[in-house]
Amino acid sequence: MALLHVNKEIYMTKKLIAMLCFLMQAPVAGALYASSAVEEMIMQAENARKEAAALGFEWRDTATLIAEAQDFHKKGDEENALAVAKAALLEAEQATLQARYMKKHWKEFIPEE
């Protein structure tokens, strides 16, 4: 009976340690998740920028925004990194839309007096 009691105590201690370990890892896991989300967003922005550039319509600041996002990411500032990477992605996507629209409609923009 006493042995069972000791075993139970050991079991409870192990359980407690396991829970503590899990709780301690949560912020790390969260940070890792945020970090991979930022990397994913930067990669998407860079791919979109390349697409706009290939069409000859890259915007002036997109590459700078991507570099800025990478800097924030390196410094561990994932919140700003994500925000700037999103802005870069939006720019690049709009540039691509602009390129595709202009390819079809440029003649409509010949001014007539």
Binding site: F57, W59, D61, Q98, A99, M102, W106, F109, I110
Partner: peptide, 21 residues
């Protein structure tokens, strides 16, 4: 010619936009 009349950039402007219109 296409370049001249195509709007581009964040301000969505073309050569013709400024220097004609």
């Amino acid at each position: 010619k296409e370049f001249f009349y195509s709007k581009r950039g964040k301000l969505n402007m073309s050569c013709a936009g400024c220097h004609m219109r």
